[in-house]
Design a protein around this nucleic acid. Sequence first.
DNA 1: ACCTGAACACCGTTCAAGT
DNA 2: ACCTGAACACCGTTCAAGT
Lengths: 227, 227
Amino acid sequence: MRSASTKTRTRPGRQRAYHHGDLRRALIDVALELVTREQDWAFSIRELARRAGVSHRAPYNHFAEKLDLLAAVAAVGFERLRVALLRAIDGIDDREAALIALCRTYLRLGLENPALYRLMFGPALSATGAVDRPTVARVAGAQARAVLEDVILEGARAGVFVLPAGAPNAVALAALSVWSATHGLTMLLIDRIPPPNLSVEDMTETLLRSVIGGLRQARMAHSAQAR
Amino acid sequence: MRSASTKTRTRPGRQRAYHHGDLRRALIDVALELVTREQDWAFSIRELARRAGVSHRAPYNHFAEKLDLLAAVAAVGFERLRVALLRAIDGIDDREAALIALCRTYLRLGLENPALYRLMFGPALSATGAVDRPTVARVAGAQARAVLEDVILEGARAGVFVLPAGAPNAVALAALSVWSATHGLTMLLIDRIPPPNLSVEDMTETLLRSVIGGLRQARMAHSAQAR
DNA sequence: ACCTGAACACCGTTCAAGT
DNA sequence: ACCTGAACACCGTTCAAGT
């Protein structure tokens, strides 16, 4: 799309040029911008349509209801997360350092765009009412999770991390513990729950120390190599 | 209120009896019931008024806007949490066992009423748009947090837990780590993010093992400096 | 296949009164 | 002090058409 000539915007038929048949994408873009700027997804479908320059009915040609639109926005957020996580560990050899980089990146992204983050893990996916319709976002979330599991698996193979047992679930369970801790701190910070006299850096460091400690655990016989 | 005769409900003036001047309380009750049953707080103020048997305008005499009503509901949730946490550790001597009991209770309550839990930590408190109006819920949350901090402080004094440094923040930081992990797992479970082949019990146990490990953690060689 | 515009039943919030 | 009822400007979603 970006390779196409930008002159189309200066052409006479300006209104048609913007959508050029991809109103769906345009709606997601506008919604993402709204979520980011207003830090809220309470905007109406009608306003969305207005900003996209179409009738208030048009969005329903692409999304059955508002929930589906929000799920699409969440999917974009998960994709961004996945890319950011992959980039964060790029070129890092030490799996422990890689894990820390993952957690810090995760936290940073959450704090950068709290509303998007909450949308990703919120009601849009959790199927509060009916069946889990927005599979899109769920799949995207699973891909982001895979990055974390890979690092832990590699660390376990390298002997840096000690996993609970030989169960096939071990990696998934360990990853979920790390994820829980990081996700929890991110959420608490987003929601401004911690007392204001604690600094984000201190909280992060304390948590990561605990998380890493939990993974090194078990055989703490001899002092391991310091970093 | 409970000490008052319940015969008032069987009296002739049934309509007046229910509110007996406390429409505010009645509205909170109805809202809490709606949140619990529908697992959602998308209900309208008008519907709330309908169920309470008053005009759709009446609620505005007690809550400036819907947010304030939701904050009041959240405050009830925090109070319930505080009571449940206190009861959970009642009679337990071992501070490590007490801490585990706290985490498990926290998790259980969250899974019992996900919508209320999400409301407690959600936008109603986080002041997405303006100033932090709903101080009510914030205070209630701080009280619940105090229970956790007490257990950790006592454990540290008894030598069961080893805290980072002598900084006055140490207890708060340690408590926040434990809270983050527990809160994170609760949220992830509520949102059905973990893969379905993992059992809740396995996830919980793995997490708690890691959390406890982090608190026992022998001071590793170099001392930790808090900023 | 996609869009428009009218229509329906709702909503949050305000205003002007009532008691 | 608290409640009512009308009113305003919105909303999500559906229907019947247009191209």
